[in-house]
Design a protein around this nucleic acid. Structure first.
Lengths: 344, 344
DNA sequence: TTTTCAAGTGGAAACGTTTGCACAAACATA
DNA sequence: TATGTTTGTGCAAACGTTTCCACTTGAAAA
């Protein structure tokens, strides 16, 4: 008699074995598609399993086999268009291979990121995909996970020193192409809104900007390079600063759509966009297509990035402990040209 | 000798017990805060556990105890501002109680929703929170989960027939207050963009609209009620239809910010907003504050909704099988008044 | 003194799988 | 005939916890 009578006693492989007068090991093998089981028994087992409403107990399975069907994902936030699209991409891919996704938010705080990684390690996930927080910290937690044998996939905000799978966007190229586009539209004096250059993505965009400018034989003013964080207010303030220069720029490349929007809102009543000044952002946030003038931007392929993370994971599972070289994927950004830079 | 020598052998409670010359049962109790363990042993155990880098094996723990520390969440998509904010809310709450969140996307497809629920059941989550897909289907999968003893929390798109915990927004009130606001601004002929009224949220908004109109002694034209789905294009088309009426409305209440935007874009060059026509949307999508004129809307408290889902879950765990009445939470929407309806 | 009780601990059996090993039967090879 | 090989199955031991039960103590109650 089942003591916890209020809960349905789940059917186990023992029940199936008993029904078929066979051994649980046979049932297990049949259900797992082991090829040493005859087609006949396999079908029988499947039939009885279905009839009894059998569901595999993943706890027992994972405990015994040491394998899990869950992949952990650590992001700064889930409610940001960029990261939520990535999550969608990962989920779309791994689901169809029978894996589930566990989410953990770091809130862009180092300490919480460490907690997330620990929680996922404890939860026994099959791998951890992580975009590191922008707060400065060390990477002990990631190294520790790696040493424990946990497969890792870093995406977007990557720590290049670590020898893991990684998926990034080619930020260098994104910035380079954005500048090239501006130049092709006749802009010459391009300003840059950039984030903390200790972080790989901003470092690369800065490099792309510089090299593109040099390539087009354009010099730039140090006053044109502004450290601006990703907010509408910061963009407004930065645009104000630019307008006050004795020789103001005729275009802005912003590392964030939000600060680009801020700049646009500040400039709107003062100069003509795109005739007198062009603005291009970064990320292709959903709103960029709806504001007016619509905002040109560099699309970061977030859903695609998620899909690549998912595929990297699948690949990595297949490899099964075989020590092989970690794959680094570099995604190609896409320039989205809209009204804010289209002067014909 | 450990056979899988390439993987660190994890330390278990047995290792701790051996070290302290005590029994694994004691260690287990000490780690779980059982009060029949002396303070002294508890501390000893904690010390050794830390020194050996012990991590609880959740598979073994869950297998034995039948309890899980994972909560499953089913949403149509993760990359929509509304649902990703909900996820954030849930995560924020349950994390600090030591729970993790597993995500599954139904893509708003009935069949996939069923798959999601099955996957989460198999994964042995402690509870399932779900916003049902808008595709018509039956609720067998939800009833089945319920019968198996799985605690359920429905949110936003709720199936009212089911006797479960639920968290919804007061859509009736949202629509009612939106209409009242329009009337207070002097608008009289209010049109309504609405989704499929078989779904609770739209049914309620429709009701709110009707009652508010009646309350203000305003009659409305059947031509003013348009079934419009949540897209910019549908909004444009609907606005066009309205303008072609012999007696066009002077305000639009849209069930979606996207169709409100579409309408706004279509109307912008033809009539003055908000002087000649007022527009108000639903959801408070991030872009609504950035477009011009900025779009008034009804905020749906998505993050709050997630937090309430999380808290309901915690509460529900505490109850521990005690049969009690499921709590239904109704959140209060917030009217966000912006330029698109502010005529002074 | 004996009995009762509480506090703290240990022993051992679960939980439901997977898997190494053994084995039987049937069949092919020498 | 003897020897190997293949195919399918069963036995039993894990995996790392939790938890029921029993057992020591030492102290309080009778």
């Amino acid at each position: 008699m089942c003591k916890r009578f209020h809960l349905k006693r789940k059917t186990t492989i023992l029940d199936i074995a008993r029904e078929l007068k066979t051994a649980p090991s046979t049932v297990s093998r049949a259900l797992n598609g082991n090829r040493r089981i005859s087609e006949e028994t396999r079908k029988e087992v499947a039939r009885v399993a279905k009839r009894l409403g059998y569901m595999r107990n993943h706890f027992a399975s994972s405990l015994r086999s040491g394998k899990s069907n869950v992949i952990g994902v650590v992001v700064p936030f889930t409610d940001s268009s960029f990261f939520s699209s990535i999550i969608r991409g990962v989920e779309d891919i791994v689901n169809r291979e029978g894996y589930n996704v566990m989410i953990c938010q770091s809130h862009d705080i180092y300490e919480r990121e460490v907690k997330c990684v620990e929680a996922l390690l404890e939860a026994g996930v099959a791998a951890i995909a992580i975009s590191v927080s922008s707060e400065v910290g060390n990477y002990k937690h990631i190294e520790k996970a790696s040493e424990l044998g946990m497969p890792l996939i870093l995406f977007d905000r990557v720590v290049e020193e670590l020898d893991t799978y990684s998926v990034m966007i080619d930020d260098y190229r994104g910035a380079y192409e954005a500048v090239t586009h501006l130049v092709s539209m006749g802009y010459r004096k391009v300003a840059l809104f950039i984030g903390n250059r200790e972080i790989n993505i901003f470092r690369e965009r800065y490099r792309g900007y510089k090299e593109a400018m040099a390539h087009h034989n354009l010099s730039w003013n140090e006053d044109y390079i502004l450290e601006v964080d990703s907010s509408v207010e910061a963009g407004e303030a930065a645009a104000k600063k630019l307008l006050e220069l004795s020789d103001p720029p005729d275009a802005i490349l912003s590392s964030s759509d939000f600060s680009a929007l801020g700049a646009m809102q500040f400039l709107q009543n003062r100069v003509n966009i795109p005739e007198e000044i062009g603005i291009i952002g970064f990320s292709n946030e959903p709103f960029t297509g709806y504001v007016s003038p619509s905002l040109s931007t560099v699309d970061q392929q977030s859903q695609k990035m998620g899909e690549v993370v998912g595929r990297s994971f699948i690949e990595l599972q297949g490899e099964n402990l075989k020590q092989s070289y970690p794959v680094k994927t570099l995604l190609r950004p896409e320039l989205i040209i809209r009204e804010s830079t289209r002067r014909i």
